[in-house]
Design a binder for these strands. Structure first.
Lengths: 235, 235
DNA sequence: CGGTTTCTGTCGGCTGGCCGACATGTCCCG
DNA sequence: CGGGACATGTCGGCCAGCCGACAGAAACCG
């Protein structure tokens, strides 16, 4: 189920040619970010684009009631803070380090000038934005049309694709450890409901936890819990 | 509340220089699309990008249970079907004409080659994708963190921004007529709940309907029904 | 190592809004 | 123009899952 080279795919820096990467890094400032420290926050100016060199960063909305809506996790090599740099306007989301991290930052002005002279990179930025757009479209569909148990399953499918690696025996192990609250924040439900759904899936044999408490998915069983997209009447 | 030049903003073709536009149109095929006809559907190859010349097109997911999740409407001049062209992979959404429409189509291969030689247009594509990404992020937050009445209000704010024009007396008139079902499909609720919420807002004086049944919003009253984004603790 | 904080498992009361239904109003098309 | 299709207004029963709570387990940090 994980797409081949998925990890390499999301690693923006690794997908640049050595020359393009060198030109970009020449524009970048490096910064250490402690666990729980904000890289940027909603309301601030979106005048830098960031690359995660090491660590993990979560990107989330924070609602007026204080509810955190977690959009995605950034892994090393990934670009983030991109939407406001491309489109302009202030930040709408928060980017916060989940662990001690290292971030490279390029100013909006430098980045735009760089894209104008590096067409292959501009296309790659399109690619990243398009991929995230498709993903959010899937999240919206899931939120609207699926009950909580289905949403947990669909999240597992997404996590397997972005953070999973296939073990020799066909199982998929997630490289990332998430709390039930984090998962709940990604699918718009409560921690308790995630706990309950995961335990039901565990009893069904769909998943378990390895010695390090990483989630391990039995992919064939997971697929049997997954809904297939509908064919349009008239198709 | 409507951003100045919002309509011009989303009109991709109008934002191109005459030369860039001419080069692009040289690659395009024109096609008439009847009301309710699909421009493309989920599962098909994403090998064309489309520009709406006239008419209106809705872009939506269709869930396995047959529930339509409406992501956005395309207006004349707008580009759509872009995400799969940039990122690759099959279509995940449907694009269907809401009325008799005219569509210009450019093949993925031609479009990518075009972007490589037209850097300003590649940046504009970034802009469009980023804008849509921000919008979907807001939709997700709304779905997760707001009750139905709040979601209706937030939808009105979004519609005013993208489809509204300011009348001399400060009211905002929507240029687009939406059924309650369409609005429900945009915010993940039922037609009945939208009807109920709209009627409550009408009784509050927030909105009414003009002679053509277009929705008219009293923007100051609408703002008083809108939640403000939270300040992050520690900001 | 031990105290504190965070995470997970479990429970039951409560309610927002979904759902199906029906009546009335509006629009469309032959 | 008029009949049929579609949209809107209204109602009440029902339930998925939210919420608050508590206990036990696990992780963290000085």
């Amino acid at each position: 189920m994980p797409e081949a080279d998925r990890e390499r795919f999301s690693d923006f820096l690794a997908r640049l040619s050595p020359r393009d990467r060198g030109d970009l890094l020449r524009l970048a400032l490096r910064r250490k970010v402690a666990k729980c420290e904000l890289v940027f926050q909603a309301g601030s100016a979106g005048n830098f684009v960031h690359f995660l060199e090491a660590g993990r960063v979560k990107v989330y909305h924070l609602s007026s009631g204080g509810k955190e809506v977690l959009l995605w996790f950034c892994l090393p090599g990934e670009i983030f803070g991109l939407a406001e740099v491309c489109h302009g306007g202030g930040r709408q989301v928060y980017a916060e380090a989940c662990e001690s991290s290292s971030v490279l930052s390029v100013s909006q002005r430098d980045f735009k000038a760089y894209l104008e002279t590096h067409p292959a990179v501009a296309l790659l930025v399109n690619d990243v934005l398009a991929c995230r757009l498709r993903n959010l479209g899937n999240v919206i569909q899931s939120l609207v049309a699926s009950d909580v148990n289905e949403r947990v399953v669909q999240l597992l499918v997404r996590l397997a694709a972005t953070h999973g690696h296939k073990a020799p025996n066909g199982e998929i192990c997630l490289d990332i450890r998430l709390t039930h609250q984090e998962m709940a924040n990604m699918i718009g439900t409560t921690r308790q409901s995630v706990t309950s759904a995961l335990n039901a899936l565990r009893r069904l044999g769909v998943l378990d936890f390895d010695d390090n408490h990483h989630l391990r998915i039995h992919s064939e069983r997971l697929l049997s819990e997954t809904c297939v997209p509908a064919q349009h009447p008239g198709a």
